[in-house]
């Protein structure tokens, strides 16, 4: 990571590309050509931009986000671990299959992660194993109801630049 302020490396076209194509892509034979046309580029230039955004780490992938309630089982879990063990425990959690988010947060419960699995039985198995391995009780917080999940929100470019 060359610079911490990656936003300075993104020009107007990169930003339009991100703003325009977070939700859906043209389902045509050559989707990148169709996107390129809209942005006034050629296909190869657009592919190179996408590749660069991926290389910069700004874009994780160009793909689908599935509805987790239909796609399988998932659960938010927290653990409270002493500070000197935090790093080691985070690595054990990351090694558990299906972990897709793992954050250090400012709280007595300092590690927060989401475990996903193809179905509830295998989710249960993964969590039971992890709890045994960590020898720490898991705070398991299954969802009751979702009111809103949308991580394709409009990006505050101006504020990102000022920061």
């Amino acid at each position: 990571m060359a610079t911490d302020k990656v936003v300075d490396d993104l020009d107007r076209i990169d930003r339009r590309l991100i703003d325009r194509y977070q939700r859906s892509l043209p389902l045509v034979e050559r989707p990148f050509a169709a996107m390129a046309e809209e942005l006034g580029l050629d296909e190869q230039a657009l592919i190179e931009r996408l590749q660069r955004l991926c290389d910069l780490g700004v874009v994780g992938r160009v793909g689908a986000v599935f509805d987790h309630r239909q796609a399988g089982a998932s659960e938010l879990v927290a653990v409270a671990v002493p500070d000197h063990r935090r790093e080691a425990v985070a690595q054990i959690i990351n090694a558990c299959p299906g972990v897709n988010h793992n954050y250090w947060r400012e709280h007595r419960y300092n590690l927060w992660f989401v475990v996903t699995a193809p179905d509830s039985t295998s989710l249960e198995l993964r969590l039971t194993r992890l709890e045994a391995e960590l020898a720490t009780p898991l705070l398991r917080l299954p969802m009751v109801q979702s009111y809103h999940i949308d991580l394709a929100f409009a990006l505050p470019w101006a504020e990102l630049e000022e920061a």
Partner: peptide
């Protein structure tokens, strides 16, 4: 709705 979105997945 099985796919919620299909496109650039931004790492905020």
């Amino acid at each position: 709705g099985f796919i919620k979105r299909f496109g650039l997945v931004v790492r905020h």
